[in-house]
Amino acid sequence: MADTHVPALPDRRLRLRRALRHGGFVFGAAILMLALVVAIFAPLLAPYDPVAQNLSARLIPPSWMQGGRPDHLLGTDHLGRDYLSRLIYGSRISLIVGFATMVISGVIGSTLGFVGGYFGGRVDDVVTYIINSRLSMPGLLVALAVISLVGGSLLTIVLVLGLLFWDRYAVVVRTATQQVRSADFVAAARVAGASAPAIIWRQIRPNVFHHILVIATLEMAMAILSEASLSFLGLGIRAPTPSWGLMIAEGRTYLFAKPYLIWIPGIAIFLLVLATNLLGDGLRDLSQPERHT
């Protein structure tokens, strides 16, 4: 309610000010930006080559623990590879999988949702049927089976996850489109002779975009977790490429003696997924300000 008393600010500045007051949004955005910077500048930030082995420096604990060394801040793994460097390069895999999957599944799911929601009737029946069939398939199991047959690589993982996890986009965009479809400005565009694709793109898309954005963050988090799980199970990213899930799988042998080998990449995955989800929650709150007052 307080917002009605604020002197009229330009829309964008008002939105920015509201965003900066949303703790979860700020925290999520900050962590995500940090991860992005680390991933982009990995070659400059990483002190060592992430795949270079040094068998005379195996299993060194992190520098703050007993036996730690200042030249290996997070210690080394069972092959003497610098753990900080592997963690830094691992962020690239997570972010690439997260973003690429989010885009591919977003395009597929939103298109289905727009088509079903806009046309309704028989077309919608078909779209609903496709969505139901997809929902009935166990996503992670199908991904595991297909990726193991095709062979795990960054490209296969992104394609398979992207082609599988579009269901939430489709469900949400379909419902949102149904709500916008009967609005006056859509009817006006139709009367003016605009084609269906043009109406969907110019009239409907801008009005459901905030829904797509929220789902996008959830899907990105889901993709990051899925890649980590696939790599942990040995069916995703192949060694020696550093992926956080794979690092946990490799550290598993030393679970009892060297638990930090699991803690470090585990916390990295946790923080990145948490940040992505917080960003999504923040976007949802900010796009529905009435809920907040």
Partner: peptide
């Protein structure tokens, strides 16, 4: 939020 973000294998 925490439950959603923690990988089950971890």
């Amino acid at each position: 939020l925490a439950g959603q973000a923690v990988p089950s294998f971890f």
